Amino acid sequence: MKKIAILGLSSLLVLSFLFTSCESVKNANNTQKGAGIGAIAGGVIGGIIGANSGHAAAGAAIGAAIGGGTGALIGNSMDKQAREIDEALPGADVERVGEGIRLVLKEDAVRFDVNKSTLTAQAKANLDKLVPVFKEYGDTNIEIFGYTDNTGKPEYNLTLSQKRAESVKMYLISKGLVSSRFKTSGFGIADPIATNDTPDGRSQNRRVEFAITANQKMIDDAKKKQ
């Protein structure tokens, strides 16, 4: 949680509760955090964090939280999936957020050339490493967020970033993943993870991020196990 905008009295009340609750779960394990964050009105908090932290994937993961015992079971499954993703693709940044996973595929995993949305051979090889994990955990939704560096006009980059997210989606579908699991969004030059003042930094910003969350079947199955 990097920064949260104050949006009026109602937001102040929500944020006051958020800060108190964040303190109580700060030292919890990931499964406990999943249950705790979900119990703190995950959708509302996810929207605030996602809009103001610079990480849409993190906001989407938190916003999908269910909470309670159901959230704890989902969180446990996400813990396992996050570990498997990290083992399959060490070059990726894997972060457990609430009851979901934020996955950042930057230059070491999936990079794009300037003004391009096509996947390189290296990008395809790295996505291939994720396919078995995504298939093993089939009861998840996968939202893909595309980004660009600041080269060119913002309006053009917005379209380009959407195409990058779509390229990743279509490749994963071609490998046997179900299309209904996916949603894509393009954010253009927003939310850079590195400086745009150097070639290396711009390369890192030409990336995709994933928000991996429970689908309805996973939620229903978790409720039955309580």
Rank of each mutant, 00 (worst) to 15 (best):
M1N: 13
K3F: 05
G8Q: 10
T20P: 00
C22R: 08
E23S: 12
G36T: 08
G38M: 07
A39S: 15
G43R: 14
G50V: 09
A51Q: 13
N52L: 01
H55N: 14
A56N: 00
G59M: 07
G59Q: 03
A60Q: 11
A61S: 15
T70L: 09
I74V: 15
Q81N: 00
R83A: 15
A88R: 07
G91H: 03
V94P: 06
R96Y: 02
G98Y: 09
E99I: 10
R102Q: 14
D108W: 00
V110Q: 06
V110E: 08
R111L: 08
R111Y: 11
K116P: 03
T118W: 00
T120H: 06
T120Q: 03
A125P: 14
L127V: 05
D128F: 06
K129I: 11
V131Q: 10
V133Q: 02
E136G: 00
Y137G: 04
G138E: 13
G138I: 01
N141S: 13
E143D: 09
T148R: 02
N150H: 11
P154I: 06
P154N: 05
P154F: 02
T159F: 08
S161M: 08
S161W: 02
K169V: 06
K169S: 08
I173N: 09
G176M: 08
V178C: 00
R181I: 10
F182Q: 09
F182E: 08
S185D: 05
A190E: 13
D191Y: 02
P192G: 05
N196Q: 09
P199L: 05
G201E: 10
G201L: 06
R202I: 07
N205D: 12
N205P: 13
E209N: 05
F210S: 02
A211Q: 03
M218I: 04
M218E: 15
I219M: 05
D220S: 14
D220K: 13
D220V: 11
K223H: 03
K224I: 15
K225Y: 05
K225I: 13
